[in-house]
Design a binder for these strands. Structure first.
Lengths: 161, 161
DNA sequence: ACTGCTATGTATAACCA
DNA sequence: TTGGTTATACATAGCAG
């Protein structure tokens, strides 16, 4: 019954909601078990769009407590005590900005190729597709997606350092 | 091999740490998949005692963003506080970050088309070029370049406001 | 401690009512 | 929808190096 699921946004609304509810339940259970088995503080916050309020686990009060701990930790400047909060944040803005410019440039390189692609298509150099090509494409897309996800996680990590 | 585990604090230190690392990995994966499959905001914070810092997922910045949302939600009853300097700067980081993500997504869309383009080329659907096509291309590229320059200037303006 | 393995328990996609 | 079932994919406890 269970097929290997493609890791991508589920377009079907009802299927997505079902999956959301099932996986949310598992996430909560996983958090509970981590807390109990390892005796540590864990919390999760979900903004699903299915509720106007955020869904939190294990409890709103516990989440508040853990957030307070997290904030007091990050106010230290994550090890950068010497910088004051403002210049620290300023630095982060600059970093984000630099990345943005970099990514924009990559965009531009790709855009050039795409324009070429469009031109070729309009000139009828490309007028057919076959199934094998599309299947291969699907596989390539999946791998690329993984790469990009990884890359974006790295961006996040760098940004907070 | 695997026995049904008793849901209680694991007294054995090394076993507990191993379990912690394995389950943490699963938790992260689960959060990632929820975000991707359902297109929602999810974050998790762990205070394990194995690290001096909290471990957060999917990224420190994302956690900050979601916490900000969570806090603004829980402050609604008291009426929203005026933004102080810190949260103002925070908001700017979040905005930069959102742009980055947006541009990354555009990148991704283009990348898909490029993969298709590559596939087509390898399958010999495209094997010729002519001069007119390339001339037209040059014009189009020039126009695109202007657009992008304009767009990046706008980004600069917004961010420094 | 940290791999990696594997047998087994568990989660969950697809299906049906 | 929602809730229950089931077959398959996945997670992970225990163990070995």
């Amino acid at each position: 019954m269970r097929t290997k699921v493609k890791l991508a946004f589920m377009v079907n609304d009802s299927a997505r909601k079902i999956t959301y509810n099932k996986r949310k339940k598992s996430l909560k259970k996983m958090v509970d078990e981590l807390i109990t088995l390892c005796g540590i503080d864990v919390c999760a916050i979900l903004y699903s769009g299915y509720h106007s309020e955020p869904e939190v686990w294990p409890s709103p009060l516990e989440v508040q407590r853990i957030i307070t701990k997290f904030k007091s930790y990050s106010e230290v400047g994550q090890g950068r005590k010497k910088l004051n909060q403002e210049s620290y944040l300023m630095e982060r803005i600059v970093k984000s900005k630099e990345k943005l410019v970099k990514v924009e440039k990559t965009n531009w390189e790709m855009e050039k190729s795409l324009i070429l692609f469009e031109c070729l298509r309009q000139e009828n150099f490309i007028n057919t597709l076959n199934t094998n090509v599309l299947n291969d494409l699907a596989c390539e897309i999946n791998e690329k997606l993984k790469e990009i996800t990884l890359k974006m996680n790295q961006l996040d990590t760098n940004e907070s350092t």
